[in-house]
Design a protein around this nucleic acid. Structure first.
Lengths: 332, 332
DNA sequence: TTGAAAGCGCTACCAT
DNA sequence: ATGGTAGCGCTTTCAA
């Protein structure tokens, strides 16, 4: 079933069918009706490849993340998919994993598929080693980085200020009377570094570097718990914990429970996990939804060839639950 | 940059370039080298639309789920994406949401995109109202349903026996001395019904229907907690809880904590949440990874036109953590 | 308002 | 082993 069949059935030329299909205005209502009837009757749908071949676009956006099984990426992908579909774009999803080789392979594969744009999620695409691949990509399509940043014309960065968020968490704790703070973190991606610098800024400004600690842990509940437990035992005067990830905060809460201790804990990502713990977890909301909707808006503007900012930074906010409340005073 | 440019640069015909591109054997090493050099030099990649137009395939699989932000679907999508990419297929992801209209729209949109197959995740695609859409889909491409089932030639069902799993959970509890069991569930999809029937079977067989309860709750931690708390107060003799979802199990644990009670709890899905609670949660593993890898194997067999079973059922297994251990005897 | 026809870039068949 | 060429199904320009 193709456009010729429809043309024949409707007694018109393929050009006219094409016009109807593309909602061109120069078709008389009568012929339009005939064509639509033929289409309806046969259940015909245009061949996307032929259309793509002519227009060189298939209305598809490539979305890259490390692994959609991670809740943070999943939320973003879900959000993007809905927003893009509303704009008639489909999502081609790649879970690249951590390695540079695979990320590079995915970018190129996406370009081979002639997607209309690429959106990356997460700071791990902020990687000098990928610059060449992005340079090539940008040559063909716009690239939007959510929480990533590569300074290159054609790459648009939409991110949330994680350094400021972490800095704020520490300051809030301090103002509530906690000054022996542990920072439990998981990775040293660009995002990890930003959060760490936020922590360092805070303790420096507050003059509490002497009594503050940082320690790294693999990104699992069990490891977070073990690592936190060890350092809490070694330094019993630690009286508050800030983490780079909700998962680690969950581990920290478990460590406190095991040690029979109480201390405020602040997570990061405001994920479902924050609602599942006892006490429920106060956590930094990284504004994924807003990042995604902003990204899609920017993208549609780009497609319309309107000027858009190359860099947008949003402020995250602290969502308070039972593991720490800024209102309450210290029980220290 | 197209195949003509490469042909000219390499001093051969486009037919030869095409042969090199498709790794046909009938090309002399010398010409092959020339062509590859030209490709390398120019960075040429074949136009996917033109290829698709000829072959009527773009090596793309449509994956449908309700919402990838749900951890259960996210795990499956992640798993499928990796497996399919390894087979050179890309994943077009649609989060359909709950409504039939949107599911239907997504199926049709996927067909318009000329995907090579459709994979649905979750029992909510087992829906008589969608039968017409699937009938049309099956006409064009194979459909694989993970944890879903529609009896129609061309639809392959790969699922996990959730009824048996729930039945087993109840029996395990009973054998450890718990016979006043609450079943806390969230939905009445096909999957929800299967689990419920498993529960009913168990209590009937065990002769404990008199002291068993079922209650429904929205699928959030807060609701699960509130609903569980209410019924536990009304029926204080309830001494064990089985749930249809880890999220509800988390709620149940919180309810027990609030009431200062202890009772074994069994979740379903063996998600990350099960590691985050105190006590950690014993949960039914729904074998997502196995379901996905089986699905991809089946699919590749179908593409090779080999015969495959229309229905595969896997047995789930109970993953024991601290909220209930079959080894331990009742502390009742 | 409509139709004819020239591409779009590739694959695969038929020659040589 | 290589080349010529006819499609694949659509969009769009040019003519009428």
């Amino acid at each position: 079933m193709n456009i010729y069949d429809i043309a024949e059935k409707a007694g018109v030329s393929i050009a006219t069918v094409s016009r109807v299909l593309n909602e061109s205005d120069n078709v008389s209502p009568k012929t339009k009706a005939k064509v639509l009837a033929a289409i309806e009757e046969t259940g015909y749908t245009p061949n996307i490849f032929a259309r793509g071949l002519g227009l060189n676009s298939i209305k598809m956006i490539g979305v890259l993340c490390i692994d959609v099984a991670d809740m943070y990426y999943a939320k973003a992908v879900s959000s993007l998919e809905k927003l893009l579909r509303a704009e008639e774009y489909d999502v081609l999803l790649y879970c690249t994993g951590e390695t540079r080789e695979e990320k590079c392979r995915c970018i190129n594969r996406l370009l081979d598929k002639r997607v209309d744009a690429i959106i990356t999620i997460g700071s791990s695409f902020t990687d000098n080693l990928l610059d060449d691949d992005f340079k090539q990509a940008v040559h063909t399509v716009p690239v939007i980085m959510i929480n990533g940043r590569v300074d290159m014309p054609g790459i648009y960065s939409i991110s949330c200020d994680e350094a400021a968020a972490t800095e704020n968490s520490v300051k809030q704790l301090y103002h509530c009377g906690y000054s022996n703070i542990l920072y439990l973190y998981d990775c040293e991606t660009a995002s990890g570094k930003a959060k760490m610098s936020g922590f360092q800024n805070a303790i420096t400004q507050l003059g509490i570097t002497k009594h503050s600690y940082t320690i790294r842990s693999p990104r699992t509940v069990g490891d977070g718990c073990a690592v936190a437990q060890a350092i809490l035992q070694k330094h019993p005067h630690i009286n508050a914990i800030v983490t780079s990830e909700d998962i680690l905060a969950v581990g920290a809460l478990q460590a406190l429970d095991k040690l029979g201790k109480k201390a405020p804990v602040i997570g990061f990502n405001n994920s479902l996990l924050a609602e599942c713990t006892l006490p429920t977890l106060t956590s930094v909301d990284n504004m994924v939804e807003v990042l995604c909707s902003t990204s899609v808006s920017i993208l549609t503007e780009i497609f319309k060839e309107k000027p858009v900012p190359e860099r947008i930074v949003l402020s995250p906010r602290l969502v308070e639950r039972n593991s720490f409340r800024t209102g309450s005073n210290a029980d220290k």
